[in-house]
Design a protein around this nucleic acid. Structure first.
Length: 369
DNA sequence: GGAACCGGGCTCTGCCATGGGT
DNA sequence: ACCCATGGCAGAGCCCGGTTCC
């Protein structure tokens, strides 16, 4: 399309005479850059993508370069994914969120799919993960690396069930370079040895299987978190070792600043309630996930328990009650108050049970009233 | 038969920065 | 100058039930 035609189509001929010279120049510049960008993009490709239901605006925002490519494989990708059971909407969503997916060849796709299938039982499982996170599957074009990862992770002693959970839960792990994964495993093993552990392989494996996200964290984060816990908790090395590969494995995930903040706030809160540093450590050994709870939320939960007449001591003895949502706790406390439940006499274990069990208990209490 | 212990299941992507390659 | 591949980041819990113990 010639420039005057474009102007005409935009109705600019009528506007231009009213503009100052400077403004006109600006208009021209804008138009030129617009038409250049536009011409750079592969019009046929854009048309195809629109037909497929792709949100081209989003795709352009995410990976503009892809729209300029002369050769792409959108049709191949669509038919490939459809044979695997993906719907039209799912495919469009995948391309919208990760446009580079259309640059992968059929051969490449088939190879990568087979590698994923070595971990998954069915195509539909893979489709649902792709729908959840297209990037995990498509970000890397290195199938050799993927294969090496599967071998490497298997060599850590993770069995097929673990690999399956890992790829389902944190699919990005498999797109990491095998070198990056190796660095994290090395770090974990070093931590084990530095704390006097004797079986670093078992230690690393335990942490990974308890915290499936660990391999998509940076070593910097994990390292600084371990160091912080080591220096702040004042635990014996052997205790820290137990904590890290036990219920503390997941707190390594926390961003370093958040971990420090939550720990500091926990100490302050306990302090204000008359607890000691030993209390805090004991609490962490029993229920490390408490560091996951944001200060405000933790405070709310503690306050609502205390308000119902429960003592700090009781909470310290049974920290898992803090695992339940504030809403759930309030509801349970309310119900128990109605039947005149005596926490002093009966303890608070009743709060730490599944809903089904709690309701059964409640019914029994009600029939006794 | 009920309480207590204990481990496990879900769950987390979408964006930005960077460096290398062309 | 641009694109691709890759690393890193933010944000921040809840619930269930098998088994063992008493």
């Amino acid at each position: 399309m010639a420039l005057p035609q474009i102007w005409a189509s935009l109705g600019l001929q009528r506007i231009l005479p009213q503009q100052s010279l400077l403004a006109s120049l600006q208009w021209v510049r804008t138009l030129v850059s617009y038409t250049q960008t536009s011409n750079d993009e592969n019009r046929l490709l854009l048309k195809n993508l629109k037909m497929l239901g792709v949100d081209v605006k989003m795709a352009r925002k995410r990976q503009p370069g892809v729209l300029k490519k002369a050769i792409t494989n959108e049709h191949g990708l669509v038919s490939f994914l459809q044979t695997k059971g993906a719907s039209r909407e799912v495919v469009a969503g995948i391309i919208t969120r990760f446009p580079r997916s259309i640059t992968r060849s059929g051969e490449h796709l088939e190879e990568r799919w087979q590698l994923w299938r070595s971990v998954f039982q069915s195509d539909s499982e893979i489709v649902s993960i792709l729908n959840r996170s297209p990037e995990s599957f498509f970000r890397s074009s290195d199938n050799d690396n993927l294969e090496k990862n599967i071998v490497f992770l298997g060599s850590l002693g993770l069995d097929s069930k673990d690999l399956h959970r890992l790829l389902t839960t944190a699919p990005r792990t498999f797109s990491n370079s095998v070198e990056l994964n190796r660095q994290m495993v090395d770090l974990l093993q070093d931590v084990c040895l530095s704390l006097g552990g004797t079986d670093p392989s078992q230690f690393a494996k335990a942490i990974i299987s308890r915290n499936l996200y660990i391999l998509i964290r940076s070593t910097k984060r994990v390292k600084s978190n371990v160091e912080f816990l080591q220096s702040s908790l004042g635990l014996k090395n052997s205790d820290l070792l137990v904590l890290l590969q036990g219920n503390g494995a997941e707190i390594l995930d926390l961003s370093h600043e958040i971990l420090k903040r939550n720990f500091r706030m926990l100490q302050e809160k306990l302090d204000s309630l008359g607890g000691t540093k030993e209390d805090a450590n004991k609490l962490l050994m029993n229920y490390a996930s408490i560091l996951f709870v944001s200060p405000g939320r933790l405070s709310d939960k503690l306050d609502c328990l205390l308000k119902a007449g429960i003592t700090v001591r009781q909470i310290m003895e049974k920290p898992k009650v803090l695992d339940f949502s504030l809403e759930n706790l309030m509801w349970r406390l309310d119900e128990l108050t109605k039947v005149g439940y005596d926490f002093n006499q009966n303890g608070i274990a009743v709060l730490d049970s599944s809903r089904k069990r709690f309701e059964a208990k409640l019914e029994k209490l009600n029939s006794e009233v």
